[in-house]
Simulated scan of single mutants.
Amino acid sequence: MPDIIYLLEMIGVVAFAISGMIIAQRKNMDPVGVFTIGFITALGGGTLRDLMMDNHPLYWIKHQEQPILILGMALVFSYAGLGQRIRESRIVFPDAIGLGIFSILGAQLALDLGHSWFVASLLGVMTGTFGGALRDTLCNEVPYIFRKDHIYASISFVGCWLYFLCQWLLANETLALAIGLLFIVIVRMAAVRFDIRLQRDSHY
């Protein structure tokens, strides 16, 4: 299981970093800006989670291969112009992958440190959404988490609870993780595809 967790973490880092770098290049940022936005998007949520739980050293400091990977990706994106060739709408899929992976893994870490399901679910949402919120704020965009036309944080929250319940009922952590992760990714993609919202504007 630890090997699966680590693999998922690296996939999440790559997915979120890609979503950040696409937007950074659309905003005509230089390689430093591309790296910064990619780093914040991929690792910002986990950093805030660790700080709030007083979990030291921070995860990416223990695993320096993550920021090194992001640096390498930033150089490739900047000098190969990948972000210019990828439509901005394409960030939805890597963003959904990152949201799912980091929400579930963040919630599990909180459980491992002795927190309740409710607190762990909030920390999972924070892990999955805060990096993207910082990305959008720094790029002068309204963060997904605050947009009325996007279901985002609520999907993360429900996915964390589904993960907890499956873990309790099935007594199989790997299966529970897969169910929670797939739920978040599929529902997030479906929400974008079919314009599913928590609230719609009232017309009088």
Rank of each mutant, 00 (worst) to 15 (best):
residue 10 M to L: 14
residue 39 F to Q: 02
residue 63 H to K: 14
residue 72 G to W: 10
residue 127 T to C: 14
residue 108 Q to G: 06
residue 65 E to M: 12
residue 68 I to R: 10
residue 169 L to M: 15
residue 146 F to Q: 06
residue 3 D to P: 03
residue 67 P to D: 13
residue 173 E to R: 09
residue 176 A to L: 02
residue 24 A to T: 08
residue 65 E to C: 03
residue 204 Y to W: 06
residue 58 L to E: 03
residue 185 V to W: 00
residue 85 R to V: 13
residue 183 F to G: 02
residue 176 A to D: 06
residue 89 S to E: 13
residue 28 N to K: 15
residue 102 F to K: 03
residue 2 P to S: 10
residue 5 I to V: 14
residue 13 V to E: 01
residue 187 V to C: 06
residue 149 D to E: 13
residue 84 Q to M: 13
residue 198 L to D: 14
residue 9 E to D: 15
residue 116 S to T: 15
residue 123 L to N: 03
residue 100 G to L: 09
residue 82 L to A: 08
residue 155 I to G: 02
residue 56 H to I: 10
residue 146 F to P: 03
residue 134 L to W: 09
residue 5 I to E: 11
residue 48 L to E: 01
residue 66 Q to N: 12
residue 165 L to C: 04
residue 159 G to L: 08
residue 86 I to C: 06
residue 165 L to H: 08
residue 79 Y to G: 07
residue 17 A to M: 12
residue 91 I to M: 04
residue 52 M to P: 03
residue 96 A to T: 06
residue 126 M to W: 01
residue 13 V to Y: 03
residue 102 F to L: 12
residue 116 S to N: 12
residue 175 L to I: 15
residue 31 P to N: 02
residue 124 G to D: 07
residue 34 V to L: 12
residue 126 M to Q: 00
residue 182 L to V: 15
residue 62 K to V: 00
residue 202 S to G: 01
residue 83 G to P: 11
residue 132 G to V: 04
residue 169 L to I: 14
residue 182 L to N: 14
residue 113 L to S: 03
residue 104 I to M: 07
residue 19 S to M: 08
residue 11 I to S: 01
residue 14 V to K: 07
residue 81 G to I: 11
residue 18 I to W: 08
residue 132 G to E: 06
residue 66 Q to C: 02
residue 70 I to R: 05
residue 192 V to W: 00
residue 177 L to W: 02
residue 92 V to N: 05
residue 111 L to V: 09
residue 1 M to P: 05
residue 151 I to C: 10
residue 57 P to E: 11
residue 51 L to N: 10
residue 98 G to S: 05
residue 53 M to L: 15
